[in-house]
């Protein structure tokens, strides 16, 4: 369950900076993420939010700054001091990464069951019956009919693919999940269903989430706290409701007032 009383942060970013040559990806970003907390990174295209996410998830090395993570044994470790083997192990057990385009996060040529089971096999599970049982269970949890277990993700709709990707990430019981625009490219009703599902899973599993989105409605529904970025820098942080209801920075005010009212 959500545990705000924990004294120790799960993830700590200090002065994270990433340059692409002379250009800024993101500059001097610092924050702490607590166990069970959902943090949204919002901003317009090109504001550096995906660069920041990739740095946090060790998919991209920051030019400067440090990112620390509390391992399962309770020790705070600098992610870029870990060996590559440790980092990759962390990524496929204790972390998840949900891509905007499900095809980037799925193996499109193997069945849904194998997609969910891959992480289990990667950590040494060698019992076919158990792997399949767990896969079925997870398909059900993300509202995919169990009879589709042997179908390729290519035969799935966009929304189903995204849900499959989420199941594939959560099967090893990660503590931290990174999401890059998980609802991007889906139509509104599918988005709503996915958000509903995500909110339920996050609460049930007590997940910590860093979610990148340009959609303030997604941030409002899912996140506890948010970071607003522009031109690679953080311009406002705070509780989600506080930032959205009473934006302080002029840019945030602009962003909030740009939401279409239907």
């Amino acid at each position: 369950m959500t545990d705000f009383l924990s004294e120790e942060p799960l993830l700590r970013a200090s002065g994270v900076t990433r340059f692409y040559g002379d250009r800024i990806g993101c500059r001097d970003v610092s924050f702490e993420l607590w166990p069970g907390e959902v943090l949204a990174i919002v901003g317009e295209s090109g504001s550096g939010k995906t660069t920041l996410l990739n740095c946090l998830a060790t998919r991209l090395a920051p030019t400067a700054g440090a990112i620390e993570y509390r391992m399962r044994d309770g020790a705070m470790r600098d992610l870029f001091q870990l060996t590559e083997a440790e980092r990759r192990f962390l990524m496929r057990t204790d972390w998840g990464f949900v891509h905007q385009n499900a095809a980037d996060g799925l193996r499109m040529t193997v069945s849904a069951g194998a997609n969910v089971g891959e992480r289990l096999m990667a950590v040494g599970n060698r019992h076919y019956g158990n792997i399949r049982g767990t896969a079925l269970d997870w398909l059900e949890r993300v509202e995919i009919d169990g009879t589709r277990i042997d179908d390729d993700p290519r035969a799935f709709s966009g929304g189903m693919r995204q849900r499959l990707q989420i199941a594939r990430n959560l099967v090893t019981g990660p503590r931290l999940v990174f999401m890059d625009e998980p609802t991007g490219g889906l139509d509104v009703s599918v988005q709503a269903r996915l958000l509903d599902l995500l909110r339920g899973l996050v609460a049930d599993l007590g997940l910590s989430v860093v979610i990148v989105t340009h959609d303030l409605a997604v941030a409002r529904l899912l996140s506890h706290r948010m970071i607003v970025m522009r031109n690679g820098e953080v311009i406002e942080t705070g509780l989600t409701d506080q930032v959205l209801d009473d934006p302080q920075a002029p840019y945030t005010q602009l962003l909030v007032s740009s939401i279409l009212q239907v």
Binding site: R88, V110, S111, A114, E118, R119, M121, A122, R132, I149
Partner: peptide, 18 residues
């Protein structure tokens, strides 16, 4: 190099599933 061989079993899993 890192002895990450889970993928090999994904192939065998697919065989049994199909």
């Amino acid at each position: 190099a890192l002895e990450e061989y889970g993928l090999m079993h994904v192939k065998l899993y697919e065989d049994i599933a199909h």
